[in-house]
Structure formats: structure tokens, C-alpha cells
Computed example of a mutant assay.
Amino acid sequence: MREEYEIEKLNPRKNPYAKLLKKQVTINIDEDTISYFKKESESEGIPYQTLINLYLRDCVAKKRHLEISWT
């Protein structure tokens, strides 16, 4: 292995998986909603943030739309 490499000669490529990378966001979620996902995550054995992400990805994949009715 070389001690130094010439970066300019390496021909860097863009990451083909860059679109799949996660982006950190800040979001306000009700306490009871967080508690629900934390309890579900314990029974499933995965982190609650991962569970929330999986749920949201499922909504996107199935193109679910909200049905809101204000009474």
C-alpha cells in the first residue's frame, strides 16, 4: 500500500447510492405518538426512528393520501 496517493489521478465517481442516503430533519411529534412507536419498536427489536422511517417509506411506496375531515 502506498503512503500517499495522487487524488487528481483517481478519477472520482459520484456515489450511485447518494439518492438513498438519509437526511437528518427536525420534526415535532406528539408525545403519545412517540410513545407508541417506542413501544412497537421494543416488540419488533428495532430502533423507533427506524420504525417510523419504515412506516413513512411504506406510505410513499403505496402512495397513501391523507383523509382529513374537520368536524
Rank of each mutant, 00 (worst) to 15 (best):
M1R: 09
M1F: 15
R2F: 10
R2W: 03
E3F: 13
E4D: 10
E4K: 12
E6Q: 13
E6G: 01
I7F: 08
E8T: 15
L10A: 04
L10R: 04
N11A: 08
N11G: 09
N11K: 14
N11C: 03
P12G: 00
P12H: 06
R13C: 09
R13E: 14
R13M: 10
K14V: 04
K14Q: 08
K14Y: 07
N15I: 02
P16K: 05
Y17N: 15
A18Q: 12
A18H: 09
A18N: 10
A18F: 04
A18P: 08
L20D: 15
K22Y: 02
K22S: 05
K23C: 09
K23T: 12
Q24A: 10
Q24F: 04
Q24G: 09
V25E: 06
V25W: 02
V25C: 10
T26N: 07
I27A: 07
N28T: 14
N28P: 08
N28H: 06
I29D: 03
I29A: 06
I29G: 02
D30E: 14
D30L: 10
D30I: 01
E31L: 06
E31F: 02
E31A: 09
E31I: 09
D32W: 07
D32K: 11
I34W: 01
I34F: 05
S35T: 14
Y36I: 01
Y36C: 08
Y36T: 11
F37H: 00
F37M: 01
K38G: 04
K38I: 06
K39H: 06
S41D: 02
S41H: 02
S41I: 04
E42S: 05
E42M: 14
E44N: 12
E44V: 09
G45H: 01
G45R: 07
G45Q: 03
G45K: 01
G45P: 04
I46S: 04
I46F: 01
P47H: 05
P47R: 09
P47L: 10
P47S: 07
Y48P: 01
Y48S: 12
Y48F: 10
Q49R: 15
Q49E: 12
Q49F: 02
Q49T: 10
Q49P: 07
T50F: 00
T50Y: 03
T50L: 08
L51M: 06
L51P: 00
L51I: 02
L51R: 00
I52H: 00
I52W: 03
I52P: 01
N53K: 12
N53T: 11
N53A: 15
N53G: 04
L54N: 14
L54M: 05
L54E: 15
Y55C: 06
Y55I: 15
L56C: 09
R57F: 08
R57P: 00
R57G: 01
R57K: 14
D58Y: 15
D58V: 04
D58R: 06
V60Y: 05
V60L: 10
A61W: 10
K62R: 14
K63L: 07
K63C: 03
K63H: 05
R64L: 09
R64M: 13
H65T: 12
L66R: 08
E67K: 11
E67H: 11
I68E: 08
I68G: 02
S69F: 09
S69E: 10
W70N: 11
T71Q: 08
